[in-house]
């Protein structure tokens, strides 16, 4: 059988025309069917998003007797020259990078452990997912009790009398620990799923070559997991840099702004000091930063994969 023999004759012009018409009708039906799903997205997601972007270029304030006017890039100028913003941005970056990194390492360890043929593996896997079931506010309250200077379990175990969340140098590390704890389940589950997709034959093959545990991990497990790792760390990064509820409950950005993540900063600007336009610009700037960081990261990973 040759290729030329099976190739169909070129369609005649009227037939092509008919097919295009059928195609466009299909498209139309597709749109009609998608409309119920699209309307809420447009109304409740795209709409507010565009509104927020528009606000960022005005001097809008959350007040009753203020005439909002268009100010162009003034908010951006203010933002870039504000020390508060940069210190908040720096804290946000420290938080997001260290939480994502530590979360990944801890979750990878846990996933490898849970992937072993342990006794009570089922129970252990369920336990590992428990923090996922808790809303951030509950986690925040729980850890607040752990860190409590007088009644906290941490101080009584260590025999110290440290006010963890009120200390200028300890507050950020303390909330990073909570952040890592909170985000571990989903990272673990995703990595575990990835681990189970690594073909057993690969391990058998290198075992024949006499590879040890470390070689197996380094040369088989990690490369095989790479797409999963890229996906989950990027998602974790976005999730962490936009974290709000957890830190709001734990420290409200204190002491003295040492844990004021960018989103807390935006919240304060909008709802405490009522500079809605400025806060919108802050949100916009953070979205751009996240997109840029992610874009760079994903682009590098993709290039390496090629």
């Amino acid at each position: 059988m040759t290729a030329t023999a099976t190739r169909p004759a070129p369609p005649t012009p009227p037939a092509r025309h008919a097919r295009r018409r059928r195609f466009s009708r299909q498209t139309r039906e597709m749109w009609v069917l998608m409309l119920p799903a699209l309307v809420p997205v447009l109304l409740f997601s795209v709409g507010p998003l565009l509104y927020g972007i528009a606000l960022a270029f005005t001097d809008a304030r959350n007040t009753r007797n203020h005439e909002t006017s268009f100010v162009g890039l003034e908010n951006l100028g203010d933002l870039l020259t504000a020390e508060d913003f940069w210190s908040s941005f720096r804290i946000g970056m420290i938080w997001a990078v260290s939480v994502t990194g530590l979360q990944f390492l801890a979750a990878l360890g846990l996933a490898l452990l849970l992937n072993q043929d342990l006794r009570f593996r089922g129970v252990a896997r369920v336990l590992a997912v428990v923090p996922w079931a808790m809303p951030p506010v509950v986690i925040g309250l729980m850890w607040k009790l752990v860190y409590h200077p007088d009644a906290g379990i941490l101080n009584s175990v260590l025999g110290t009398h440290v006010n963890w969340l009120a200390d200028f140098s300890l507050a950020l590390p303390a909330i990073i620990v909570v952040g890592v704890w909170t985000g571990m389940p989903q990272t673990t589950v995703v990595l575990l799923a990835g681990l189970q997709n690594v073909p057993r034959e690969l391990y058998e093959a290198v075992e024949v070559d006499g590879a040890g545990r470390w070689r197996k991990f380094w040369n088989i497990t990690l490369p095989q997991l790479k797409p999963v790792i890229v996906a989950i760390t990027s998602l974790d990064f976005v999730w962490n840099i936009n974290q709000f509820g957890l830190v709001y409950v734990l420290t409200q950005g204190g002491p003295g702004g040492q844990t004021r993540l960018p989103m807390l900063f935006a919240y304060e600007e909008a709802f405490r000091y009522r500079f809605a336009g400025y806060a919108s610009m802050l949100g916009l700037a953070m979205a751009v930063v996240v997109l840029a960081v992610l874009g760079l990261y994903l682009w590098r990973q993709m290039r390496e994969a090629k």
Binding site: D84, P255, G256, E268, R272, Y273
Partner: peptide, 13 residues
Amino acid sequence: DEWKSKVATPALQ
């Protein structure tokens, strides 16, 4: 309020 939380509280502490 902003002076208090951003400037005065940390400075006095």
